[in-house]
Design a protein around this nucleic acid. Structure first.
Lengths: 241, 241
DNA sequence: TATAGTTTATTTGTATGATAAATGTCCGGT
DNA sequence: ACCGGACATTTATCATACAAATAAACTATA
């Protein structure tokens, strides 16, 4: 959807570097980082740029700086787990099934709830947006076109749910999941297989039937989920062999 | 639970000040803030301190700084709505029923899901933690003691759910809701009225019955929710009169 | 006149150096 | 053993300078 990840600035690179070191476990919670002057020297930047990076990491809950002591890496429970960068770093450093499961679990919680809320509160315009996305999915000829339309569909549903907290959560989780696979399309030989599921969701929202919408969305996710499981167990076998 | 909100540093105050201005709508999306030198002068701090604050606000998605242009306030859809500070500022600046409803909606989504997950995955230790909290609620003699034990109960359930993304979300939402009322205890004459609900949740988690746990938790929230509604409509009538 | 390319003014980005304030440690006194 | 104060270390803040990016003004040219 949106890509605020484009890092142009120097301090951004520094933040990424140190953030990854922390999230990946190269430096462990409780440890104190080298002093600013040393760190700045190591990374070939000025103390100014380094400090700006540190402030942002501090805002993300990864570190805590105190005068006279240094910057201490905080325990994981203080990290802003829902921060886009933190999530991205976790995806990059621990692409374990375990973590993917947690992301999928979040998706399973959000989307059915969003579908139900959308069925309750959608305006005519919002319904039209969902329908437009659905038609684009139906008309898609390529995998990319389908993936884009699919994302638009889910986004439109979230929009119609009318709760920006939900949208924000979805956006973060979805973008993290996106680093692993383009939804589950790439894993299906026929990438349009889930179109009927989408239609059911659309219809339920049109008719303002929250429970029907919730169940349809849940079924859709469960379906793509089982698809994914197959693929993963296959991949695991390969890794074992 | 945790209070990282304690702002000791100067740049933190600056961040709060400007962040509130943005979230409260004093400066609107699309506008560009005064140049750094001017802003620093207005707030009586150095450009360095101001810039550190701006970087953090930028990380929260509230602004975007570009050389030669200035710092532009971004549209609301780019804001990190789930950031603790952003949420706090929203609570402070728009304590409307509408926003509280959105927070409550999030709680209604998270907690039943967490209860179900806890029933599936809890360890013996985690169950013991939940039980300890329950017993503390049962034994509570004062409202404060009850509120603390209650928070511990919900926290233990989230912990047992075994998904730190869920915990993080809960923690953020709960602390935001906390700015409005101590759960719904203060609104009930008998603050222990929800103890039976808690017991049902505990039992379901003990017996590893996800669906029962989900429904019990939902019932508990719905109950406290209806309590709240009564109070609010009463307050609204008063405001109208 | 219109337009493409260039200059120029403005603003943020980065670097450097200096001082203030906070913090833990060490040491001496009791 | 305990307490309080000097001391070293590290971050916090400030001030200043210059580099780089950007948009607006300008100029040459067709």
């Amino acid at each position: 959807m949106r890509k605020p990840n484009a890092v142009r600035n120097l301090y951004g690179h520094v933040m990424q570097e140190i953030g990854q070191r922390i999230v990946s476990g190269k430096v462990r919670p409780g440890e104190v980082l080298p002093r600013e002057e040393t760190l700045a020297e190591n990374l070939q930047v000025s103390r100014t740029a380094l400090r700006e990076a540190m402030k942002v990491l501090s805002a993300k809950g990864l570190i805590e700086s105190r005068a006279g002591v240094g910057a201490r890496v905080l325990e994981e429970r203080f990290w802003n787990q829902l921060d886009a960068d933190v999530l991205t770093w976790r995806c990059a450093s621990m692409p374990t099934d375990d973590f993917v499961d947690k992301l999928v679990e979040m998706r399973e919680i959000i989307e059915p709830a969003a579908a139900a809320a959308a069925a309750r509160r959608r305006t005519a315009e919002q319904l039209a947006d969902i329908e437009t996305a659905y038609k684009a999915m139906d008309a898609a000829q390529t995998l990319d076109a389908w993936a884009e339309a699919d994302l638009q569909f889910h986004d439109a549903v979230l929009q119609a749910a009318g709760n920006e907290l939900m949208s924000s959560l979805f956006s973060v989780v979805e973008s993290a999941l996106g680093t692993f696979f383009v939804l589950s399309a790439r894993t299906a030989s026929n990438f349009k297989y889930s179109l009927p599921h989408h239609q059911k969701v659309l219809e339920a929202i049109r008719r303002k039937q929250p429970d029907v919408a919730r169940k349809a969305m849940l079924a859709m996710i469960a379906d793509s989920q089982s698809n994914l499981q197959r693929n993963r167990s296959r991949a695991r076998k390969k890794a074992h062999a």
